[in-house]
């Protein structure tokens, strides 16, 4: 599988928007969510099509992470419609949702301290056939191979992020939710993660990405949605990015 992939630099040179949009993989309508009494999401609407990289942008506290967690079934108090590959998953438990083929790489990375790197990598069970093999994963993330016996949390921040991505590639899930995979990492690591996401996209993975750093997102995203105060307030394609730059700056306050 990996052998047939283009190299990372080739992939970066390809034009992502040239890909034809596939079937709707994820469709979210009027998603509302609460933490206890506080109402966080006030009606989120968007969709993701097969093979796309869709990026949620928005300021701190806008509700991006809550949106991913709601899709994953982690937020108990939620309402609205979430359809994945045509099936309603809005009321399913998170283990059932994962078994449908949805995988998450959480914002805090979620590397387990009581597990070594290999155990962390092997933790998520296979939910579908066709996940990456260990060799393919080590080809993507050579660092991990050297550190298999280390305690998970002894890895550097960048390695932990790679591990958090790598472990969901094994599962066979084709829909990945990545929550700020570049947060707090050095530029060279960000670049490596960027290339990885590119390759995954070329491999046909569908990716829902949360990013604060839209320059990073711009290298791979097909479309963007802007989240503000628990709502989607705008959305545009990557080709419209430069036309929307002023709006974007005001949305993100950068």
């Amino acid at each position: 599988m990996v052998e047939t992939m283009t190299t990372a630099s080739d992939a970066a040179a390809a034009t992502p928007s040239a890909q034809p949009a596939g079937d709707v993989v994820l469709s979210v309508q009027n998603l509302q969510a609460w933490y206890g009494e506080s109402h966080i999401l006030h009606g989120i609407d968007f969709e993701v099509r097969a093979g796309e990289v869709v990026t949620l942008l928005g300021r701190n506290g806008a509700g991006k992470t809550t949106t991913l967690k709601s899709i994953m079934g982690i937020i108990p108090k939620r309402s609205g419609s979430i359809r994945f590959e045509g099936k309603d998953i809005s009321r399913a438990s998170s283990d059932k949702i994962a078994r449908q083929g949805v995988a998450i790489c959480p914002e805090e990375r979620g590397i387990f301290a009581s597990l070594d790197v290999r155990e962390n990598l092997m933790l998520p069970p296979q939910v579908r056939p066709g996940g990456l093999s260990l060799e393919q994963i080590f080809e993507l993330f050579p660092n991990l191979k050297e550190r298999l016996k280390s305690q998970g949390t002894k890895l550097s921040g960048g390695e932990q992020q790679m591990l958090a991505i790598a472990r969901i590639l094994r599962t066979g899930a084709r829909f990945l939710m990545l929550d700020e995979p570049t947060e707090g990492l050095a530029p060279v690591i960000i670049q490596q993660i960027g290339h990885t996401i590119q390759r995954l996209k070329n491999e046909g993975f569908t990716i829902l990405l949360v990013e604060q750093n839209f320059r990073f997102a711009a290298t791979m995203a097909d479309r963007y949605y802007i989240v503000e105060h628990g709502k989607i307030i705008d959305g545009f394609a990557n080709s419209e990015l430069s036309a929307n730059m002023d709006k974007l700056h005001s949305y993100l306050g950068v």
Partner: peptide, 24 residues
């Protein structure tokens, strides 16, 4: 063992382990 790794992980962060598809 693998089963034990699931157990240790679920001790640390049951929510995430469940979100990987394990029936916690």
């Amino acid at each position: 063992t693998r089963l034990g790794a699931n157990l240790r992980a679920a001790t640390e962060n049951p929510t995430l382990v469940r979100a990987f598809g394990i029936n916690v």
